[in-house]
Nucleic acid binder design. Structure first.
Lengths: 105, 105
DNA sequence: TAAACATATGAGCATATATTCATATATAGT
DNA sequence: ACTATATATGAATATATGCTCATATGTTTA
């Protein structure tokens, strides 16, 4: 049995760390946000384009992008009347990779 | 920019896959469940022991273990009146590792 | 058998979440 | 200036979630 990789790799996690960690995973715990992230993994997209690809309302997507923005998982850039979103965290894809492998068995 | 690791590594994810993936991450989106998992990463524990370590009620822990059981992330074994829980998924620690690194910067 | 201990679970409640709808703001084109 | 387009956001609502409390079930010990 593992002797605890958490302690091995540094200090213990504080209660606050657990809250932050949970907060991080919460971003991936909704299908819509996941789909947005996966779309952005292939390249930057503007809001309506994401909405169209996902077959969802502009508002719903905008609300979720706000969440992802708050978590600093995506960044945005204004280009005229459009706002282009892209991934803004090197770890995002690493985190997803393991999960996707898991789902695929 | 990445050309899409999702497509690279196999077929596309279906809507159902996204639901499953979200469901997987949901398990890690709560501090209590995260703490339980981290505790179990160091070895098997019975319910009350987890409860005492986390300073939470037996009921609260039992409810969360039920969730983790449903997700097949933990397994349980009855030993007399105690029930011992342990991790039951090779991917669990891999998923957590990336997240923990992220939280630690 | 009775009492103590360990766990599981249903009901209830407070809070969080995801979406829709309406609307505000800003930019571009006519 | 007017209209169309793109995005953001507050309010409302329906649903999900996490915990407590009470209690049921099962096991060990006196």
């Amino acid at each position: 049995m593992n002797e605890g990789y958490v302690k091995k790799s540094g200090e213990e996690l504080s209660i606050d760390d657990f809250a932050k960690l949970a907060e991080l995973y919460k971003n991936f715990s909704d299908p819509t946000r996941l789909r947005i992230i996966i779309e952005l993994a292939s390249g930057a997209l503007c809001v309506q384009r994401i909405a169209r690809r996902l077959g969802m309302s502009q508002s719903a997507i905008s609300h979720q992008l706000r969440v992802l923005r708050g978590a600093r998982l995506v960044k945005h850039e204004k280009e005229g009347k459009k706002v282009t979103y892209s991934l803004d965290d090197e770890h995002v894809e690493d985190i997803l990779k393991v999960g996707i492998e898991h789902v695929r068995h």
